[in-house]
């Protein structure tokens, strides 16, 4: 069981490394947004530091959207996805593994470069740790939600627009609590309540979303 999961993870990561340029896209995208926004709203430090939490988070969200269309599609096309139901590993775990590799590719780089982004947008130093923690809790949520939307749209052939419409309502709470946490920390307030609620969302999502994702995948390969 663990072997199947590890093999899947290794395969996904190896593929990501081989497609080097493509896997760097989320990061490039993040910085494109972070450079364009100051160019658009002006370089004033006050304005930038006020909108910094939201900007970093919206950029992280958009970055996670990039790779979603190819999350399950290649496996559906070459028949690998159907094989998931023939093995003895529960499909939910394979789904989780796939989402974990998606997070490693799209979420983790954003977290690693978040301090740089924070500096570029003049986020107060005291909010930096909260930003990183909120991303640590929140980006897995983005991967889970994105995975669900991508599984739901798998059987359709115009996925991408639909994907964003499906994801938008689901990420509203994530965005509110995550940016709320960072803004509170930037104002010198405690961000615990926000982070607690964000964690609660993560726990809820980890328990429920793989079930829904598996069900959606199953319907789509029928």
């Amino acid at each position: 069981m663990t072997r199947a999961m590890l093999a899947l993870l290794r395969r996904d990561l190896r593929l990501a490394v081989r497609h080097g340029g493509e896997s760097l896209m989320p990061l490039v995208f993040l910085f494109a947004v972070l450079i364009l926004v100051p160019l658009g709203v002006g370089p004033g430090p006050n304005l930038l530091s006020a909108i910094a939490p939201g900007m970093v988070w919206v950029a992280a969200l958009l970055a996670s959207l990039l790779a979603l269309e190819h999350l399950f599609r290649p496996d559906l096309d070459d028949g690998t996805l159907e094989q998931w139901w023939t093995g003895e590993t529960p499909v939910g775990l394979l789904v989780m593994t796939r989402l974990f590799s998606h997070w490693l590719i799209t979420g983790l780089p954003v977290i690693v470069f978040a301090p740089v982004a924070a500096q570029m947008l003049y986020l107060p130093d005291r909010a930096l740790s909260t930003l990183v923690v909120s991303l640590l809790i929140g980006t897995p949520l983005l991967s889970l939600i994105g995975g669900l939307a991508s599984a739901l749209t798998l059987g359709t052939n115009r996925g991408s627009v639909l994907l964003s419409i499906l994801i938008f309502p689901l990420v509203v709470p994530v965005l509110i609590f995550a940016t709320g946490a960072v803004s509170a920390a930037a104002d010198g307030l405690s961000a615990r309540a926000h982070l607690g609620l964000l964690s609660a969302l993560l726990i809820l999502a980890v328990t429920l979303i793989p079930l829904a994702t598996t069900a959606a995948l199953r319907l789509n390969i029928e």
Binding site: L148, G155, G159, L166, L170, L204, I209, A212, N220, E222
Partner: peptide
Amino acid sequence: LGIMGLYAAFEDKRKGARVACILILVGLVN
């Protein structure tokens, strides 16, 4: 709109309906 779009995007209407039903239930929690 998401539910309508998802259902409309499927050629097999029964499959589309069931997938969209999952989305309805996800929305119920959400």
